[in-house]
Write a protein that binds this DNA or RNA. Structure first.
Lengths: 246, 246
DNA sequence: GAGTGGTCTAGACCACCAA
DNA sequence: TGGTGGTCTAGACCACTCT
């Protein structure tokens, strides 16, 4: 960088990566840096903002600029571990998976394509907050066609449209009991910066992107039985897939 | 937001999402916004910086602040499409996949664990730049144990350690010809903000995270045959996995 | 209360692009 | 050449945390 703030940011970045400021420690205070580099306060602030939006540090009012430490949870997908269950996989005894919203909706054109149904068909929309280490780490939106929800109600006496009811087991097992056999998932993964609301809900520091996962689960006839959109805090989770070749 | 810049950012964000400023169009110029909101120039700049680091806009000197448009490429993984070949999957006739660096290295402890070899063993490190739409969209670092490189040299007369030589076919085919059968891949996917060098190489605008993919390929005996670390521009690609259950 | 970072101002100069 | 965004200053006041 040829700018002053770029130079300061480089110095600090290098010092962090060399271990001079280990995770959890604090950078020198802004007034210290302004006099050390003989610049205006906002110039130092610009440098620190850059580091914050790279995800290296978190400025805290009244405390200082702390170097970030991250330890993501790994979610695994493989033929051997078909149902991906948050609470089991996080290895955090205090992990939670809470249904925060359930409502009947009419499928829009995008959903209709994902679920292979008609626009306007009734679908059940379930929103879950999956937490770990005291904060929401993933927001899970899930949609199910009405007929499958009815089947599950009849076969297992579980009402998925009532968010107060805790299902006795995972969705895949319920679907099998209802005569549908989920046999393949397709997941598409991307990343982007979070919206302000997402930052709020997940408590994301500046500079942490979200992992986006779009899932379609199909039965043994290739019909979609469920689709999900998941938004996860990338400083707290990763996704792992094991795929056989040939 | 209760701050002035937060209010301005919210207004602009909403206007963008409502279609008032469609992708490719420009936001009002900074002087216009300063007088419209009756604030100082830097206050408007703070608001626009926030939108830029969310990935919504790209400020261009001498031009204006343009609303971003993105069209990611999808990379697919499934048992039916085992070898993931950049140029075939990008659907861009001008896509390229260039080896930019090849060197022998000694495995560090991390690599030794991934490749199931001893620290200090010779491994071949290949770096590729995978481009699409005129820019590098993914940086691919790959490591192979020396014995497999030798096997390939003998079986197919291909020297992977020479970056000038264009292999006649993909690595998996070469491995099979050399008597090793890659039969399973495990990929772990995460995301973070790019380093300054990564932003430079891939031409990333502010506010675009990178997708990180760690891969280990194993043969039919479960031995690692290859490991890779891929860093991809999330505004230009996604990853898709199809996994059979049971 | 002392110290931290966050916001905001008014004005200046610079780098870049397009007509 | 005129308009765009980028950098930088010096100083002010605010919100927060810790002791």
């Amino acid at each position: 960088m040829h700018t002053k703030w770029g130079r300061i940011a480089s110095d600090l970045r290098e010092a962090i990566q060399s271990g001079e400021y280990p995770p959890g420690s604090k950078l020198p205070a802004i007034p210290v840096l302004t006099s050390r580099y003989d610049v205006a306060r906002d110039t130092v602030r610009d440098a620190i903002s850059a580091l914050a939006s790279e995800g290296l540090v978190t400025p805290l009012r009244g405390v200082g600029t702390v170097v970030r430490e991250t330890m993501p949870v790994a979610l695994a997908y493989s033929p051997q571990a078909p149902a991906r269950i948050w609470v089991q996989q996080t290895a955090d005894p205090k992990a939670t998976d809470i249904v925060v919203e359930v409502e009947w909706e009419q499928a829009d054109s995008d959903l209709a394509e994902r679920l292979h149904c008609a626009s306007g068909d009734q679908v059940l929309h379930r929103v879950r907050h999956q937490s770990k280490g005291g904060g929401v780490a993933q927001i899970h939106h899930q949609w199910l066609p009405k007929n499958l929800v009815d089947d599950i109600q009849q076969a297992s006496n579980v009402d998925l449209s009532n968010k107060e009811v805790e299902p006795p087991t995972d969705l895949f097992t319920l679907l099998r009991q209802a005569g549908t056999d989920p046999s393949e998932v397709t997941e598409t993964i991307g990343a982007r910066m979070p919206h302000p609301e997402e930052r709020e809900v997940m408590g994301l520091p500046a500079g942490v992107p979200v992992l986006l996962t779009y899932r379609i689960t199909r039965d043994n006839a290739g019909r979609p039985v469920e689709t999900s959109t998941m938004t996860g805090a990338s400083d707290r989770m990763t996704q792992t897939f094991t795929v056989p070749l040939h």
